[in-house]
């Protein structure tokens, strides 16, 4: 389970307009982290903004942990301005619901926007165990990131889509995934991205009876399961209960949650 750590910012790189890749020195996190887990990052020493920001681990190797952040509001903006050498206050790795890895024969890994980042470590760990079919969707050419990094893992297939067709395939990433799966069945789908995309993936997986793991986002207070802020409907025998993304998730079996 995550503890509070001060991690030195070793490297910060703008990989495309408004998206930054951070490398921090965090040997314990690197050792512990499982695919899908996230960090709760303190963005300010002044108490304003008040809450930490949940950010997924992108990659972990040896002593180094990497994460990638798209600037959205004031918290991510502050992070993007951090100086190299500064210590970042981080709780992590967090989340008991991680991507579960078994010896699947064929898998589809589908990500949209910033949702592709938690899929990188997963894809690396699946390498050698499964045939990897990866589908990454972006709004436009400028927002396409990490294509080379995914490619270099050694994939059976990599499909890049943009909503406006400004780069590679035009259209929704889920349509390409569906089409392929109609032709070649997979035994697991992994997905992370915007809610609309996850809904589509979930519906498809349930219709086709394909096991599917999805990583969810919700607004968080504590990030560790104490405040009950990050609620998600978990389906039960007699209806539903509210589970919590930070603790039971962020990864859930698609069949288990109502999104």
């Amino acid at each position: 389970m995550g503890i509070i750590r001060k991690c030195e910012l070793l490297k910060k790189e703008m990989i495309t307009n408004g998206i930054y890749k951070f490398s921090i020195k965090a040997p314990e996190i690197a050792k512990e982290v499982k695919p899908g887990q996230f960090l709760e990052i303190k963005v300010s020493d002044t108490g304003e903004p008040f809450l930490r920001r949940p950010i997924s681990v992108y990659n972990a190797e040896k002593d180094i942990v990497e994460f990638i952040i798209q600037v959205k509001g004031k918290g991510t903006e502050l992070l993007s301005k951090l100086d190299i050498g500064k210590e970042i206050d981080i709780i992590g790795p967090l989340g008991f619901g991680t991507f579960k890895i078994q010896n699947y024969k064929n898998v589809a890994i589908v990500g949209g926007g910033i949702g592709i980042y938690p899929l990188y470590q997963l894809t690396k760990e699946l390498k050698g165990k499964s045939n990897l079919n990866v589908y990454l969707g972006f709004r436009n050419k400028e927002l396409v990131t990490c294509e080379k990094e995914f490619e270099e893992i050694g994939l059976n297939k990599l499909v890049i889509t943009t909503d406006d067709g400004s780069y590679k395939e035009k259209g929704f990433v889920t349509d390409f995934m569906k089409k392929d799966i109609e032709e070649h069945m997979v035994d697991m789908i992994f997905a992370c991205g915007p809610l609309a995309m996850l809904k589509t993936v979930r519906k498809f997986a349930i219709e086709k009876n394909i096991p599917c793991q999805i990583s969810l986002e919700e607004r968080m207070g504590c990030g560790i399961g104490a405040c009950l802020g990050c609620a998600v409907k978990v389906i039960t025998e007699n209806g539903f209960r509210y589970g919590h993304v930070c603790k039971e998730g962020p990864v859930f079996n698609a069949q288990d949650v109502d999104i």
């Binding site: 809450l51 009950l228 802020g229 990050c230 609620a231 509210y242």
Partner: peptide, 23 residues
């Protein structure tokens, strides 16, 4: 008690709003 539907939390200047709904 089940509690309220999400979003239950919202950051604001000087802190946050919550409507956990006493889950």
């Amino acid at each position: 008690k089940k509690g309220n539907p999400p979003p239950r939390i919202c950051e604001v200047p000087g802190g946050m709003l919550n409507s956990i709904g006493l889950q």
